[in-house]
Amino acid sequence: MPLKSKDLISIKDLDRDDLRLILDTAESFKEVGAREIKKVPTLRGKTVVNLFFEPSTRTRTSFELAAKRLSADVVNISASGSSVAKGESLLDTARNIQAMQSDLIIVRHPCAGAPVLLARNVSSAIINAGDGAHEHPTQALLDLFTIRERKKRLEGLTVAIVGDVLHSRVARSAIAALKMVGSTIRLVGPPTMIPREVAHWGVEVFYQYEEALKGADVIMILRLQLERQGRGLFPTLREYANLYGLTARRLAMAKDDVLVMHPGPINRGVEISPDVADGLSSAILAQATNGVAVRMAVLYLLSGVAKHEPVDP
C-alpha cells in the first residue's frame, strides 16, 4: 500500500492509513539507526536536495542524516550563500535543481504555500519542512511516533498544546494529525496568540495553564518564536515565563505519566524550565532520535512514487 500523493505538503494530504503506514515504516527504520553500520543501500543513486530559506539545525540535519542513512546523495542549499541572495526566484531555483535530476526536494520557506507552488511545477517529490505559519508535517509525524512509542496508543489521549499557536506551523500540523487519530486537543496560551479561526478546529481552548493540564497525557510545548515577535503580543518575556512556562509545580497537575514534548530549539527558562526539560517526563531528545527514523520512512515511501514510469510487476 503506497502513499497516495507524490508530495508531502500537509498532514491533510494523508489519511489514517497513510499515517499508520508512515509510523509503522518508521519503526523499522528506527532499528537501522541503532545498528553499528547505520546505513542501508535503499536510495542509492537518488538525489535529495535540502532547500532551506530559513535557519534550521534540527530539521535540516535530521533530513540530511535520514537521506544519508538510505544511501542517497544529499545537497544542502540555504538562502544565504546561494543565488537566492542574488535575487533568483523560488521557482527558478527549483527548476534549476530539477534540471540537475533531483528526485526529492525538501523545502523550508518563510512563506506559507511555497512548497505547494514547487510541487505543482517540478516533477521531484516535494517534502514540506515548514512553510510560514502553515504546516510542518514531518514534525507532527515524529510527534505522533514518539507518543505512540511511549503511550502504546494514540486514540483517546488528551494532549495540551501550549504557547504561540498563532505563529506555529508545528501546532497546525500536530492538531490535524492528532484529530485524525482521535486524540482530544486542548490549546492554551495568551489570548493574543490564539488565532480566531480555532473556533473551526474542533479543539478546546484554555487561557489558564493549570486548567488545561488537569488529566493531560501529553504536553506539547511550542517554542516562543522570538524572531517573529516584537509586536506587543505579551508584555515581557518574564511575564510570559510566569504565566506559560512549564515548571515542576505545573507539571505535577497533569497525569503522573505525562509526556512532555517540545519541537526545539528550547528557550530554557521561558516556555520550559530546565528541570522539566531534562526531567523524567521529557521526551525531547527521543523526538530528535525519532525524527530521523520518521524522515527515513517519508523519504523511502515518497521515493518510489516520484517520477518513475510505472513498470508491470
Binding site: D24, A297, P310
Partner: peptide, 23 residues
C-alpha cells in the same frame, strides 16, 4: 532479517514494498 531495503529491484517497482523489522 527483512531484506526489503537491500532489494535490487526497488527502482522497478510501481510502489514501495512494506518494510518490516530486522531483529
Amino acid at each position: 532479517l527483512d531484506i526489503t531495503l537491500y532489494r535490487d529491484d526497488l527502482n522497478k517497482m510501481r510502489e514501495q514494498p512494506a518494510v518490516r523489522k530486522t531483529e
